[in-house]
Write a protein that binds this DNA or RNA. Structure first.
Lengths: 191, 191
DNA sequence: CGCGACGTTGATTTGCCTCAACGATTGTGG
DNA sequence: CCACAATCGTTGAGGCAAATCAACGTCGCG
């Protein structure tokens, strides 16, 4: 079934009866997204919570200098959403684009509140997910400030060796906060 | 009443009956914290969700270079917690210290689950709070990468003019990711 | 096959750090 | 309540990590 990756993920954090799962299903939409397609572009309101069943996305901004700055990646079994835009229904600064051909499952913002009302356990699920996401972003800030570019790269690529294979180097450089040239020089060095 | 600041904050996001509020009260602990006192020190498990009724705290790490790096500030009506430590009950990397004499209200981790079970609306409250916190930290990462130190300082101090008065400059410099000397030079410049 | 996207390499520049020395302010014990 | 120490902020000289710019190699795809 198309929704299985999400249901499986939900079950790690909360338990839903069969009836409850059936109640959930009509609120879920499924979609295939081709590499380079956008599911959110800046200036538009983020209209859903996106769960990645399979694939990879990046969230980025256009900087004043005319470059693209990646602020987040998300892969299989992660959520990606601009909560600033979703919560307040205001235009997003960000773009969300598929890095690979992907499958997503999403909850539209119009039906989100209704769904939470019917299945309060989802509040709990998202609370837990968000605790982790928030903690991770605090850790990331800490690494940004305390490590050099090279240290950050080495730490990240030993922590996620499979992931670094999956995205082009210039995206990795952007996510880690330096230039593609600099990444190339690090890799050119010993080892 | 000692708990009022928290109740008032809760009411902005969820509505609780009088009965529900009374159910909540026994789970809340209140404490005064003197300037420079710690409510969490690295190596220990973060044992509560802390709400700041009044005052100011900083969360920081000791870096490899022997300096202190501030990763978060929190003032009146904000929560501060190391969720990595709280969730997994493992030792924290971080320290949380009062920057001013403060009043806090907290929920101990031992009773947190029990409280959520009794008042599921709190799951919703924290979900919303965490969405905002997560969105804010993504915005912060974006600023770190796209703006120079000077731009970051000017942006931050025009956004929070009252706050920059409240903390010593070396803490502000640490939070913004540069040295106190550099901040001093920025301020020494025109205007 | 040819073009555009991606990666590499080197020369030069720059934003910010480091170190050091010196005022100003705060707070504490005699 | 004053004196002195510690803490905090300022200023300048010199250095370094990473950016910028430019030129060139390579691969995948239409």
């Amino acid at each position: 079934m198309k929704h299985d990756p999400l249901l499986k993920h939900l079950r790690k954090y909360i338990s839903l009866s069969l009836g409850e799962e059936n109640l959930l299903l009509p609120y879920l939409q499924v979609q295939s997204v081709k590499k380079k397609e956008h599911i959110l572009t800046e200036g538009n309101v983020c209209s859903a919570n996106y769960f990645i069943a399979k694939g990879c996305f990046r969230m980025y901004v256009h900087t004043d200098q005319g470059t693209e700055q990646i602020v987040q990646f998300a892969i299989d079994n992660w959520w990606i959403t601009d909560y600033n835009s979703l919560d307040f229904q205001k235009p997003s600064l960000f773009n969300i684009q598929a890095v690979e051909d992907s499958e997503i499952i999403f909850i539209k913002s119009e039906t989100r509140e209704e769904l939470f009302a019917k299945l309060p356990q989802l509040e709990r699920y998202f609370r837990i997910i968000l605790q982790r996401a928030f903690a991770a972003s605090i850790m990331r800030i800490q690494y940004i400030f305390n490590q050099s570019g090279e240290e950050r790269y080495r730490h990240f690529s030993t922590s996620f060796p499979d992931f670094v294979q999956r995205v082009p180097q210039y995206m990795l450089a952007s996510y880690l906060g330096f230039t593609p040239e600099f990444l190339s020089k690090i890799r050119g060095k010993k080892e």
